[in-house]
């Protein structure tokens, strides 16, 4: 992509200017999730949405029937960009991991669609989460109950705490390997 102000050329997957006056500058990545419309609207009934005409009809929940083609990639502030194969998330809807000092958690729907990623350090404690029901997980230290999609604790000693979102995205495995050649794949 190009910015109109300086005509610099940017990578729209990395968010970095590759050529031009702004070369080397990075756009700040905003935490976002990918979900089906019904999942998103259920979590955020007051949501607004882009109202343009469709340019395709390809991207539906059924896309996740081909998990081998996709990974869930993360962007840590430290610069690490690890990725997890979607198949692993389908097998582990609450996926705890640790990499180079960064601890994280990826939660996903039954088919691996609609994944979200969080930091799992709360009040200086590193928590390990496990599934405790549909859309519910529990932590190993306080047995509190948390919403897997929002990262919010709704019952127990941690009630009211919200896990910090780590920016992440569903990506073609091949695209991730090209753009983040040093990004580790967590198998």
């Amino acid at each position: 992509m190009r910015d109109l102000e300086t005509n610099s050329l940017w990578s729209h997957i990395v968010g970095k200017a590759m050529r031009g006056a702004l070369k080397g500058r990075r756009l700040k990545l905003l935490p976002s999730v990918m979900a089906t419309w019904s999942e998103w609207k259920l979590r955020h009934p007051e949501t607004t949405l882009l109202g343009m005409s469709r340019t395709s009809r390809t991207y539906k929940g059924a896309l996740w029937k081909q998990p081998g083609r996709y990974v869930y990639g993360l962007h840590f502030p430290s610069g690490h960009s690890p990725a997890v194969p979607l198949k692993r998330l389908q097998e582990n809807p609450v996926f705890n991991f640790e990499l180079a000092g960064s601890v994280g958690l990826i939660t996903s729907g039954a088919r691996g669609a609609g994944a979200s990623s969080f930091d799992r350090v709360v009040k200086g404690q590193t928590l390990v989460f496990s599934i405790a029901g549909k859309g519910i997980m529990t932590d190993d230290r306080t047995s509190s109950l948390w919403d897997t999609r929002t990262g919010k604790c709704f019952e127990g000693p941690m009630k009211g705490e919200i896990l910090r979102v780590i920016p992440g995205m569903i990506s073609f495995r091949s695209a991730w390997e090209v753009f983040f050649p040093e990004g580790k794949l967590l198998e």
């Binding site: 990918m34 979900a35 955020h44 949501t47 949405l49 395709s56 539906k60």
Partner: peptide
Amino acid sequence: DELVLGVVIGGLPRAYPVN
């Protein structure tokens, strides 16, 4: 069942349908 890219800023949610 269409996929959306969702973001919440300042408590305001917005979805961008991928299609």
